[in-house]
Structure formats: C-alpha cells, structure tokens
Simulated assay, not measured.
Amino acid sequence: MPRTFSAELIGTFILVFFGCGAAVIAGADGTSGVGLTGIALAFGLSIVAAAYGLGAISGAHLNPAVSLGVLVAGRMTPAAFVTYVIAQVIGALAAATVLWLIASGSAGWTGGLGTNGYGPGYLGEYSLTSALTFEVVMTFLFVTVILGATGPGASAGFAGLAIGLTLTAIHLVGIKVTGVSVNPARSIGPALLEGGRALSQLWVFILAPLAGGLLAGMVNRIGLTRAD
C-alpha cells in the first residue's frame, strides 16, 4: 500500500504539473506559446508517461472519478479507494504548489494556475448547464475507455496510449468549455491555491466528474461495456 500511495501521488503530480504547467508557463497564446492544442497534448502525454512509468504499481488512476468507476465496477476495495483519493489530492496540491513557486517568479504572471471554471469571463463563457453536461459526459466516456482498456480482452501494453489519447481528445474538444477537469483532484489542487472564483466553482468539478465516473462504473458492472 505505501508503494501504491506514492505511485498515485507522483502520477497525479505529473498530470497536474505538466498539464496545468503547459497552460500557465508555456501559454495558451498560439502566437507565442503552445496554444490550446499544446495544452491538450501536455495533459494527454502526462497520462501516457505516468501510465507506463507507474501503472504497474497502482494502475495509474490519478483521478478520484477513475477510482470511483473502478470501485463501482468491482475492481478495487473501498479501503483502497480512500487511499487512492487521498494520494491523488495530495499529489495535485503538491503540483499546484510547485507550479505556483515557479510561475510567481515571472513578472508577467497574472496569478492563474490553470484552474477550471465556467461563465462570464472564463474562456468560452459557457453556462453552468454546459459545464455540468460536458464534465459528466466526458468523464463517463473517459472512465469507460479506461475500464475497457485495462479490462479483460484488452490489448496488452496499449492501455496507457489509449487513455492518454482519449484525454487529449477531450481537451481538444472542451478546453473552451471548462478548461477540462474530468478529474476532481486536478481541479482541487490549483483551486485551493488560486482561491476566489475557482474555489467557489470547485463543487462543479468535484460532483460532475464523480457522477460521470459512477455511471461508467455502473454500466461496466452490469456488463454493457465489458468484454467478458
């Protein structure tokens, strides 16, 4: 269990630091930074790195919604679920802290940490309904892919790539909607440090991904998305 805890902590650190770091440090301005496509790739590639580097230890969930889906699908115990979630949140907060330490050293930093949001003033200014719908549906699809790619009958060795590419695709579609959470830990870490609006809207990025993960786990449990 200590190795599982450390693997989930480090893996979630990789995801949040690389993904949010691409947005905060490398920039969303396509003329002078990596642009939205670059940010999407950073999130996806970080999953690939963590999956192949740490997946053999913990399965590289890196996400409470994924762990909830795995729990509901009957593939982990409640005690393990709690351990995973604690490690994931700590890893995300640690990554946000390191990102803050680096970004705050720039004279041009505006205080953002790649937090999720919605509504007036946030990226595409999508509504709460849009944000909830996007996060539930995309998390359902993401966790469904994860359960399938790591389940019976899946092609050995390709899970990390399939999962990373799926997360990239989700970001390509939805960065303008919510900044893309599909992961409560990814949202919690940066929001706790940034505070303000990000913190007040955090409930959306906890409840909606958990609902999507729960639904994916239920559908898998009854066999609709399971190969065996």
Rank of each mutant, 00 (worst) to 15 (best):
A56L: 07
L214P: 05
I146C: 06
H61D: 07
L15H: 07
R226A: 14
F18R: 03
G30I: 14
L167T: 00
S181D: 10
T129D: 10
G112V: 14
Q88D: 02
A60M: 11
Y118K: 01
G38K: 00
G91E: 15
L199I: 11
A208G: 04
A185F: 13
I222S: 04
L199G: 11
A208C: 09
I86F: 08
M1V: 05
V98P: 07
L172Q: 13
L202Q: 03
G174K: 01
L167W: 00
L165Y: 01
Y52A: 03
S181Q: 07
T97H: 03
T168W: 00
G217D: 14
L62V: 14
G59Q: 11
I86V: 15
L93D: 04
T83V: 09
S130G: 15
G179S: 12
G164Y: 01
V66R: 01
G27P: 06
G196Y: 06
L193H: 13
L62N: 01
T133K: 00
G119P: 06
A40H: 05
A227H: 12
A49T: 11
G148H: 02
F5R: 08
T178F: 15
G38D: 06
A80E: 07
S130H: 14
T129H: 10
T31A: 14
I39T: 04
I25G: 12
D29S: 15
A94Y: 04
